[in-house]
Design a protein around this nucleic acid. Structure first.
Length: 308
DNA sequence: CTTCGATCCTGGTAGC
DNA sequence: TGCTACCAGGATCGAA
């Protein structure tokens, strides 16, 4: 499933194959794949027509494409409400994407056979002969259209302003993250998956970073010292960089694939999915424990549970 | 305010 | 063989 490294690979693919192009038509094959658009899928499609796509952006697991050429995304007209004030500043607009668990963004030749789970198709007003497809088996992901935060240089969509910066973002604040950990009354894996504290980390990379740090997933965050937080962040970055290095080698093709690269990195995982296989440090069989309706993988010897 | 569990979804597979 | 149960899990929402 796509976490930060896989999403970054997709972002690079979009930058290479989609940015700069103008949308000609949008075909919505499954309404659930359009999120938070109360005016409906027809309105979504109509608003996108004629917009030009800018530089592809990412924060954590979210991707967005700033677009220009249209009006504000607010749906007051569709709801029959007259705006009290006409905004004097220009609204930015962006197409926001989340891949969920099974989403893919594919750049395909026009006329290529439809994928079984094709949900949305974007055609472009040029002669390049390719189109953008959102394919998603489980429909946990989707696209949406939003105003951007006024003045934000990255055109951040307003609805993800609460998502924390990710650990590969140069503006990520390590000291602030440590302070937030100390304030929380929770455990470390919950904190790593809390996208308002640190974004881009999912179940796989959380388990991998904790294994590298020799930390049990239930260690209380309030016990963390500055060096321990620094070491953990270092391992989070290392494991993501390693995955990105593998996935990033294959993106420069027409086919922007999520599943392809994560399959490569799967062979390098030390904890996730390795139940009963020997720990690569000490040989003790890796354990799997039910946790939050999913699983945690850890080495019972290297990653001792906290007292109590 | 923080914390935590239920919910959404479908294909693959284990078990009977 | 055909059926049921379960598993994968990110983000959101509402309850405590």
């Amino acid at each position: 499933m796509p976490e930060l490294p896989e999403v970054e690979v997709v972002r690079r693919g979009l930058e290479r194959w989609v940015s700069g192009r103008t949308i000609d038509a949008v075909e919505v094959r499954h309404p659930r794949s359009i999120r938070r658009h109360t005016a409906g899928v027809a309105d979504f499609a109509a608003r996108l027509k004629g917009l030009r796509i800018g530089a592809a952006r990412r924060r954590g697991k979210y991707l967005w494409l700033p677009v220009t050429g249209g009006g504000p995304a607010s749906q007051t007209a569709a709801e029959g409400i007259t705006p009290m004030v006409t905004p004097s500043v220009t609204h930015g607009l962006a197409i926001l994407a989340h891949l969920g668990m099974s989403g893919q963004l594919l750049v395909q030749p026009e006329g290529a056979p439809d994928e079984k789970h094709l949900r949305i198709r974007l055609r472009f007003a040029d002669a390049l002969g390719t189109e953008l497809r959102f394919v998603d088996q489980r429909t946990f992901g989707g696209l949406s259209l939003h105003d951007t935060v006024p003045g934000a240089a990255d055109h951040l969509p307003d609805v993800i302003a609460h998502i924390a910066r990710d650990p590969l973002d140069p503006a990520f604040d390590d000291a602030a993250f440590h302070d937030a950990l100390r304030r929380r009354r929770t455990t470390i894996k919950r904190a790593l998956l809390d996208q308002t504290l640190i974004s881009g980390v999912g179940n796989i990379y959380a388990d991998e970073a904790l294994w590298r740090s020799r930390l049990h997933y239930e260690r209380p965050t309030a016990t963390f010292t500055r060096p321990r937080t620094a070491e953990l962040l270092g391992h989070v970055r290392d494991v993501m960089d390693a995955a990105l290095a593998v996935g990033g080698t294959s993106f420069d093709s027409l086919y922007v694939n999520v599943n392809g690269e994560s399959g490569y990195f799967e062979r390098s995982l030390d904890a996730y999915g390795r139940e009963d296989e020997p720990c690569r440090r000490c040989g003790t069989p890796i354990r799997r424990r039910p946790w939050m309706n999913r699983s945690s993988y850890f080495c019972p010897r290297c990653q001792r549970p906290p007292r109590g």
